[in-house]
Nucleic acid binder design. Structure first.
Ligand SMILES: [Zn+2]
Length: 397
DNA sequence: GTACTTTGACCAAGA
DNA sequence: ATCTTGGTCAAAGTA
């Protein structure tokens, strides 16, 4: 593959890596195309991504030395780039974090296909690794009508459809994502996973793209790389960048939860943005004294097409899934850190509660439980007031 | 009383 | 000065 690489900086200081060339297949599908046709075309596109990742990781040297940024650039250049990580290094200032996001230039209507893992893929590997193969299931919220994802391990139920809602079988969630390589179609591969795990994944399975998209014109043209803010990359224990769900069902409605990334998020705003039919949602981490924010954008079929993180978490992830898995014991085990925290301990972020009344708003709250990113119901109600020390900008009105 | 979403309003920056 | 746009606030509502 030969393709020109273009690295540019936007006015906002974002770095943009653009792949020029035609190494990705052009696929045009009309809404009238049968699912089979769409499937074949999309599958071909996803295979290229997969084979690319595999080819990189088959090289042990590459595996050891390539950073995620490099991987993204490699993909953007068709594997021929000599660009070094430094060239796409991002601001590492802890307090000057700003959104960094790179998107394909002008996109077709629909950016995000679903890259899914075939049913034959062993979930065991994923449960033991940061790669979570999720059997996402969307169900209508009784109140909002939006969807909620189901816990990844609910595999047996994943194929069931409730209330006529279309169900996506499997989804890939890749924690530690630092870079998202995405096509115009939205086929995205997050590179921030461990090398071994990704190799294992790419060598043992085939990413496929679901034959979905309701009424969307599909066009896969130029690929581009997204380099997310990587300033917190230094910390293995507290990764700042969240997993990027590669697949959501195509229900045409926004998922109520943007991602299963191990952190709890509170939505604080939503905005209709230009060039997008769907609104952009703004979330902030609910952990006390953590001011990480993220923007989530969706495609026409409800898939997350873009997640932009701002800031750095100062706490471990909340792994609701693990808590349920280990269950019965009041133990929380972090996949990422390998550290086990007793629930209720200072490091148990699941119990952290932000006192919003003094910081974000003056409203009282009333609800019995906390449903975190994984859809888990937390009965925990211990309270931590840690809003002092808030360094974020305070607006006066 | 808690935790979260919704949503109109507000603000700042840029054109 | 005005308009547009993106980001955030915060009251109200939900569970
Ligand atoms: Zn956080």
């Amino acid at each position: 593959m030969n393709a020109a690489l273009s690295i540019s900086e936007t006015q906002g200081g974002d770095l943009m890596v653009t792949r020029k060339g035609n190494s990705l297949p052009n696929i045009s599908l009309s809404p009238k195309d049968s699912p089979e046709v769409a499937y074949k075309g999309l599958n071909a596109a996803s295979l290229e991504l997969t084979s690319f990742m595999s080819s990189i990781f088959e090289d042990s040297t590459s595996r050891d030395q390539k950073s995620y940024e490099q991987l993204a650039i490699l993909y953007a250049t068709g594997g021929s780039s000599a660009v070094h990580t430094d060239e796409v290094s991002s601001d590492t200032s802890a307090h000057s974090a700003k959104f960094r996001s790179l998107m394909p230039s002008k996109l077709p209507i629909c950016r995000s296909p679903c890259i899914t893992i075939p049913p034959g893929f062993s979930p065991t590997i994923l449960l033991e690794s940061p790669i979570l193969i999720s059997s996402s299931q969307f169900e209508l919220s009784p109140t909002t009508g939006s969807h909620q994802t189901q816990l990844p391990f609910d595999h047996e139920e994943s194929n069931n459809s409730k209330d006529g809602v279309k169900v996506e079988k499997d989804s890939v969630f890749i924690p530690h994502s630092q870079i998202s390589i995405s096509s115009d179609l939205g086929a995205a591969v997050s590179c921030g996973i461990s090398h071994e795990e990704l190799q294992s994944w790419t060598s043992s399975t085939r990413a496929i793209i679901s034959p979905v998209t309701q009424g969307c014109n599909l066009a896969l043209r130029n690929a581009s790389a997204s380099v997310w803010d990587s300033k917190s990359e230094a910390s293995e224990i507290i990764p700042a960048v969240q997993p990027m769900p590669l697949s959501y069902s195509l229900t045409g409605q926004l998922p109520q939860r943007p991602s299963k990334d191990g952190y709890n998020w509170r939505k604080y705003g939503q905005k209709q943005v230009r060039d997008s039919v769907y609104p952009r949602s703004y979330y902030r981490c609910t952990f006390p004294s953590c001011y990480v924010r993220k923007k989530v954008e969706y495609s026409c079929n409800g898939q997350i097409t873009r997640i932009v993180y701002k800031g750095e978490h100062n706490h471990p992830k909340t792994q609701a899934k693990e808590r349920l898995n280990m269950n019965n014991g009041n133990v929380l085990h972090s996949i990422d850190t390998g550290v086990t925290y007793p629930i209720g301990s200072a490091t148990d972020c699941s119990s952290g509660k932000r006192n919003y009344s003094g910081l974000h708003n003056s409203t009282g709250y009333s609800r019995g439980s906390n449903i975190d990113d994984d859809g888990e119901v937390n009965g925990n109600s211990s309270k931590i007031d840690a809003d002092s020390g808030n360094s974020r900008e305070v607006k006066h009105r």
